[in-house]
Design a protein around this nucleic acid. Structure first.
Lengths: 310, 310
DNA sequence: TAAAAATACTCCATAGGTATTTTAT
DNA sequence: ATAAAATACCTATGGAGTATTTTTA
């Protein structure tokens, strides 16, 4: 702890070395560095002591690079360039311009909010790697609890016990519309629930999406109807497919009507006001800038009816 | 030149960042760095100012990496490792343990000094890339003058006008021996010059190796003989080949007798004391550590008669 | 309220400046 | 004789220490 204390290498010394190596002259290098020659000489001497090798062959008239200096020059150049690149990298990462986002979504979102949201996000965050997976709301909540995903598009509600852990932002609320097999539509322009209450109702399983399940049944009860429960299915593709096959009717979010399928007709339900809500959920303790930027999209609506079309 | 002076990034700050990121605790990181916590906090703040981004999410209970910190961490690790490797690289380069050597040699050297010299050199300088080329002495001198090679094994003399530019170190002095076609040896155990002075003498061209040329003719003149000049040839292979073909006799360096060739017999010349010298020449202003290490070999002889065999 | 980071200040080590000497051409 | 680097010495910035305050879990 006394004298031959070996000091640490610093970038300042490497910058000085580079300047001298490029100018091949201590005086000119010092001028370029906005300093005087003596401290530059001392700094190079200190650097040589740290490295354990002479960097320059000096003879008061001119200097030249030693073998060590020659070998170090490209390394030092690389090092300084990399160091110089750090601020930009930091700023890009901080702004969410680069990084990683792990995102889950319910199948309904795939027909409405997901495509335009991703398109909009990619406009300003081209270097973000997005990891997408489809999952039901309950699976997403579990994944959020375990920090396996950054965020999820899901159907509320958020269970009481997770309210403290998660942020939730409503993204979209869609009316439910009626999907009927063409064979059952009887060529009508309008169709009300009671007109087809005798057909089986194709539903989401209650345990997967209780809110949606209850909302759908609520429509019928409000109209004084008790539908016959038919097939259950999880994915929109499957439900519409079953309707198309004449297996029954379904109440689906409006945006699903973008999925034109032969044999299926869609009807608005002017009397019923049931809607399905989709929102984005993420952990409060997830400070990812990419996530913040993504969630921020939904504070300021950016989606016009047109842009949600495929 | 007043206040918002933006300071430069330093490795010290990156070392601090790494320590805090690994300990996830300013106090423990400070202890690991053998310093106290407040200056560490300040240094990290300064680093964040330079980078233009927060590195840690602080809340007095615990800290976590921000997006920028997460993105920078691997970069900073790499940078510090590379910086740490510089001293060793410098020392290896300074000692000539790594680097590059461009070396020329006359064909005679290929039968004597070159193979054991390279073998010995490679024992301690495994990472040196050696660039070898065969060339006559005069071509080597030109190449040295133009700094096209680092060093050359050549036959002296060094021209007067290059004495100031080049260093020369004698490496080897070999007696000349007589090479005679088997058909002309008449089964003798000994053979003197006069016994075959009537056969044509195969010689190096004088302009290529004047010293060797003159030494060979000197042997004959000393014995009162005037040989008939036959074919001229530059390479040892060719000269011995011509002897083997019965085209004449030749005086060759002793080590060439390692090149056993059917139809050629070698005889010592006890009466003649002519020798050929080979030495290493290099520019005085070439400060390559690899070159210095190579030339240094020949200050302390390392070659035993045995090791020069093939 | 207690643990941890931030702030306020103080001090000294060292980066950088000025003056001069040394050295090789 | 001169150009250029090294050396000697001085100054002052800022890196690190001590004491204290702020913050939030």
């Amino acid at each position: 702890m006394s004298l031959p204390e070996i000091r640490n290498l610093e970038l300042r010394q490497l910058r000085y070395f580079l300047a001298v190596a490029e100018e091949m002259h201590f005086g000119r290098a010092a001028a370029r560095l906005h300093m005087t020659q003596p401290p530059l000489s001392q700094a190079i001497q200190a650097l040589e002591a740290i490295l354990g090798a002479e960097l320059f062959i000096r003879n008061t008239r001119n200097i030249s690079l030693s073998s060590a200096g020659l070998a170090l020059l490209p390394e030092v150049r690389r090092l300084l360039l990399q160091a110089q690149a750090l601020p930009e990298l930091a700023q890009r990462a901080a702004s969410g311009a680069c990084g990683h986002l792990s995102l889950a979504f319910v199948s309904i979102a795939d027909y409405s909010i997901l495509p335009p949201a991703l398109r909009e996000f990619r406009r300003h965050h081209t270097d973000v790697h997005i990891d997408l997976r489809e999952a039901t709301s309950d699976v997403q909540l579990l994944a959020l609890e375990n920090s396996e995903i950054d965020a999820g598009f899901l159907i509320p509600p958020i269970p009481e016990k997770l309210q403290g852990l998660l942020n939730y932002q409503k993204v979209l609320s869609e009316p439910l519309i009626l999907a009927v097999p063409e064979s059952q539509s009887m060529g009508r322009q309008q169709l009300r629930l009671m007109d087809c209450a005798d057909l089986p109702l194709i539903l989401f399983p209650r345990k997967i999406a209780p809110a949606l399940h209850d909302a759908i049944l609520g429509c019928f009860h409000a109209a004084g109807l008790t539908p016959a429960i038919g097939q259950e299915a999880i994915q929109m593709q499957t439900i519409v497919g079953l309707v198309s096959a004449g297996m029954g009717i379904a109440l689906v979010p409006q945006s699903v009507s973008n999925l034109q399928r032969p044999g299926v007709l869609y009807f608005d339900l002017p009397d019923a006001s049931a809607t399905v809500e989709i929102g984005l959920a993420w952990r409060k303790d997830n400070h990812s800038a990419v996530l913040a930027a993504f969630a921020h999209l939904f504070n300021h609506p950016f989606i016009h009816a047109d842009s949600s079309k495929s």
